[in-house]
């Protein structure tokens, strides 16, 4: 029986992961902003046979992270997998005109993750087991003009996790950085994404569950994004700045 903490539990990718874990008996501690949606996700997992606890929290309230994690450990006793999946998709153009909005979006997608992981990492390190799986993004591999605010926040998360991985490795704790490409979710609804590259949340979830099982460090999902990003990060800066990607 796996004991699983999910932050941002109403996100489509998190839900799809949870359903896969629920198929093999699991206890969940779900954290999300919206109580009604969180309740609907919890009901779904409970009907599938899981034991579910919920906790309403806006992750931007850093001062409440410790109390949330206390409640989680009180409910689960131990955390085998912590999936950090919360986030928003900023409007890049708006962020270019509004510093406050830019900082807010950076907080949503970057700082809140770093704040949470700082506390969580210490608890996992002390217990010397488990997995911290963090949904970053291919967008964090190299800043592009079309969404560099999101990219910068995810890049910070990726780098933070890289360092954390090296530290927690000694304690036997896995840190998995997940880099999805384009996923067909409510978050990306309305974006003109290329259909051929668009993956379903369940396909991404299947890869995530597998990567947790295999104790991987970094996951590109679907797999071909590893190749795409390999090319993108090697394009010389002189050319890259002219591509307008």
């Amino acid at each position: 029986m796996k004991r699983i903490l999910i932050i941002g539990a109403t996100s489509a990718i998190a839900t799809a992961c949870a359903r896969r874990w629920a198929a093999h008996e699991a206890t969940f501690f779900l954290v999300g902003r919206n109580a009604e949606k969180l309740g609907q996700v919890a009901d779904d997992l409970a009907a599938r046979g899981a034991t579910v606890y919920t906790h309403v929290l806006d992750l931007n309230h850093f001062d409440q992270h410790a109390a949330t994690l206390d409640a989680c450990y009180a409910a689960l006793g131990q955390v085998d997998v912590a999936l950090v999946a919360h986030g928003t998709l900023p409007d890049q153009k708006a962020c270019e005109q509004d510093a406050q909005l830019a900082v807010q979006e950076f907080t949503n997608n970057g700082l809140s993750v770093i704040a949470l992981l700082t506390d969580l990492a210490n608890r996992m390190e002390a217990r010397r087991s488990g997995c911290i799986a963090v949904i970053s993004s291919v967008a964090g591999d190299r800043g592009r003009p079309s969404n560099y605010l999101y990219g910068a926040a995810k890049g910070a998360v990726t780098d933070f996790c890289s360092g954390l991985r090296g530290r927690l490795f000694k304690a036997g704790v896995q840190v998995l950085t997940i880099k999805p490409g384009f996923v067909d979710t409510p978050m990306t609804q309305g974006l003109p994404l290329p259909g051929l590259l668009l993956a379903t949340p369940d396909k991404v979830a299947k890869d995530i569950v597998h990567a947790v099982e295999k104790r991987r460090d970094t996951l590109y999902t679907p797999w071909f994004w590893r190749l795409i990003m390999l090319i993108i990060i090697h394009i010389p800066g002189l050319i890259f700045k002219r591509l307008g990607l």
Binding site: Q40, V41, D43, D44, A46, A47, R48, G49, P186
Partner: peptide, 18 residues
Amino acid sequence: RPLDRFIAANWETGLIRA
């Protein structure tokens, strides 16, 4: 189709709500 959650299930009686 995106509205794809179970709401309740009683696996003793086989009555589900979704």
